[in-house]
Simulated assay, not measured.
Amino acid sequence: MLVEVLLHTRIDGLGAEGDLVKVKSGYAHNFLLPKRMATIATMATKHHIELLRKRRAEREAAEFQAAQELASRLQKLKLVFTLASGSEEQEKVFGAVTAQNIADRLKDEGIELDRKKIRMDRPLKELRAYSLSIDLHPDVTAQLSVELVPPAEKAKGKEAKAKGETRKKSSPRKAKSSAASDREDHSADASE
């Protein structure tokens, strides 16, 4: 047996406040009514529907505005994560960045966000820049820039190695030129 009830709060999978829905009698009498989440729909409660719909519209407008402001903040933000990596030849990364890591970093930035709103197919494991979508509202999606970088000493080591290779390439020339100048000095000594 179905009963028509007026919802006072949003219930996922059922409806939002102000909606008239039909539910099973047991669900209404054992769950919705005792928790004051709904009332039985009668002629007297029909006028209450308009008040609830007005509140709902105001709440949804405020949520939409807040989501747009948060989206603009997130699009200006760039998160940088430092991950340990293996040898310089392999570029193997130890660890990964998950949605929970991103949510924690956003919390440090002063932005409270549920990790389930961050769209990620799998954890981030490559040292590069990413652009992630974040669902803030059914009508608002933000883009967040995330970059994974190696530790600072690895980056310095790569720069030093690159400089060392250029020095090594130039140092054999110096050795040859100094050896040639030594021979010239000895030949000049021998001629005197």
Rank of each mutant, 00 (worst) to 15 (best):
T45S: 08
D19Q: 10
F81M: 07
D135M: 11
D182M: 15
L2V: 09
H29M: 15
D108M: 12
A99N: 06
S25Q: 14
D189W: 15
A190D: 09
E112I: 08
P34I: 11
E153A: 06
A152Q: 10
A103V: 04
L33A: 01
L113R: 00
I11Q: 01
R59T: 07
K24A: 08
A179H: 13
Q75H: 12
L14Y: 09
E89W: 15
K168S: 11
A44N: 11
G26S: 12
E17D: 07
V93T: 03
R36N: 09
T42M: 02
A175H: 13
T39C: 04
V146K: 00
G18F: 04
I11V: 08
K125L: 00
V140A: 01
L132K: 07
R119E: 06
F31T: 10
V80S: 07
A61H: 09
T98W: 02
E126Y: 08
Y27N: 04
R59N: 06
F31L: 06
K117H: 07
E147Y: 05
L127Y: 02
R122M: 07
R173I: 14
A99H: 05
Y27K: 07
G15L: 05
S177W: 14
S133P: 04
K35I: 02
S145W: 04
K76G: 02
L32Q: 02
H48D: 09
A162E: 08
E153F: 11
L51T: 13
A129K: 10
D12M: 08
E153N: 11
E153S: 09
A71S: 04
R119N: 02
K169E: 02
L113T: 01
K125S: 01
L106P: 00
K158A: 03
K158H: 07
K76S: 05
V21W: 03
K116V: 04
H29Q: 15
K24T: 09
L52Q: 08
D114N: 12
L14I: 14
A155T: 04
E63V: 09
A188T: 15
H47P: 06
R73N: 01
F64W: 10
D12S: 13
L79P: 01
L70V: 05
E4A: 07
E159D: 11
